[in-house]
C-alpha cells in the first residue's frame, strides 16, 4: 500500500505543479525584463536591454538604491546586534518574565506590516523623525531582529553548554569568554543573520512607503511605478533586487549549513 507507485508519481507531479505555480511569477518577471513589448504577452517580442537601460539612466533609481543600501546595512547591523543579545540571553539565562521578554523580542513579524506601518508613522511623527532615513532604519531593525535572533539562537543551540563554563574555568572572565568563545562560535550565524536581515530590509515596502518620506527605497519606487501604468521597468528593477537578495540569501545559507558541525561528543 505504502509503495503504491502510481499514487507516489501522481503526488510528485502535483508537487511539481505547485512549484511551477510558486515560481511562475518569478520566472515571468525575469523573462519579461528582457522582452521588448510594453505590454508583455505571447509570443514574446525580441530581446532587449531597454528596460534595464531605462532604469539605469533614471537618477531616481540610483537615489533609491543608495537609500536601500544605507538602510539595509544599518538596519541589518542593528538587528543582528539586538538579535544576538536576545538569543544569548535566552540561551544563557532563566529569569522571571523571561516569556514576556521573548514575546517582546519575537512578536514583530506576527503584526501585519500595514498596522506596524501606521503605528510607526504616527509614533515617529510624534518623535519628529518621520520622513528621515532614521525612521526607516529603526523600522527595519525592529522587523529584522526576530529573524536574526532565530538564526543565532539555533547556532547557540548547537554549542556544548560546557564550552562557556570551560572558558571561565581556564581563567577567562565573562567578557573575555564572550569575546573569545561565544562570538567566534556564533560567527557563522552572525554573518547569516546580517545577510538575511539585509535581505528583509531590501525587500520591505509597506513600512518604508509610510515612514520614508522623500527617502524612497527601491521597493517604494516599485510600488509607485505599480500605481501608475503597466511598465516593464518593474521587471528590470525586480530582477536586480532579486539578484541582490538571492546573493545575500545564498551567502547566508552557505554560512549556516556548509560549516561543518562543530559540537564534540
Amino acid at each position: 500500500m505504502l509503495n503504491d507507485k502510481s499514487i507516489v508519481w501522481l503526488l510528485r507531479i502535483y508537487l511539481l505543479l505547485v512549484f511551477v505555480f510558486i515560481f511562475m511569477p518569478i520566472v515571468t518577471s525575469v523573462v519579461f525584463s528582457f522582452n521588448s513589448d510594453r505590454f508583455p504577452s505571447l509570443p514574446l517580442g525580441h530581446f532587449t536591454w531597454n528596460w534595464y537601460d531605462k532604469v539605469y539612466n533614471d537618477p531616481e533609481t540610483w537615489d533609491a538604491i543608495r537609500t536601500s543600501i544605507i538602510v539595509a546595512l544599518s538596519a541589518s547591523l542593528l538587528a543582528t546586534i539586538i538579535g544576538f543579545c536576545t538569543a544569548y540571553t535566552d540561551f544563557r539565562y532563566n529569569f522571571r518574565f523571561k516569556n514576556a521578554y521573548l514575546a517582546l523580542a519575537l512578536l514583530p513579524p506576527t503584526i501585519p506590516l500595514i498596522i506596524l506601518a501606521l503605528a510607526m508613522l504616527a509614533w515617529f511623527s510624534k518623535l519628529g523623525i518621520s520622513g528621515q532615513i532614521w525612521a526607516l532604519i529603526i523600522a527595519h531593525t525592529v522587523l529584522g531582529a526576530p529573524f536574526a535572533m532565530a538564526i543565532i539562537r539555533l547556532r547557540l543551540q548547537q554549542m556544548d553548554k560546557d564550552l562557556e563554563s570551560a572558558a571561565w574555568n581556564l581563567g577567562a572572565s565573562e567578557w573575555a569568554t564572550m569575546r573569545y568563545v561565544i562570538i567566534p562560535f556564533a560567527l557563522p550565524s552572525i554573518i547569516s543573520a546580517l545577510c538575511l536581515t539585509m535581505a528583509v530590509s531590501f525587500d520591505e515596502f509597506a513600512i518604508a512607503w509610510f515612514v520614508s518620506g522623500l527617502n524612497k527605497s527601491i521597493p517604494v519606487v516599485i510600488l509607485e511605478i505599480l500605481q501608475g501604468n503597466v511598465d516593464p521597468q518593474i521587471n528590470a528593477i525586480g530582477s536586480f533586487v532579486f539578484a541582490t537578495t538571492m546573493t545575500l540569501v545564498v551567502i547566508a545559507q552557505l554560512f549556516l549549513f556548509t560549516k561543518k558541525p562543530t559540537t564534540i561528543k
Binding site: 515571468t28 518577471s29 508583455p40 525587500d203 516599485i222 505599480l226 518593474i234 521587471n235 532579486f242
Partner: peptide, 14 residues
C-alpha cells in the same frame, strides 16, 4: 526574498 510587489505585477501581466 523576491519582491512580493514584482511577483504581484507578474500575476497582473499573466
Amino acid at each position: 526574498f523576491t519582491s512580493y510587489l514584482v511577483r504581484t505585477f507578474s500575476w497582473y501581466v499573466l
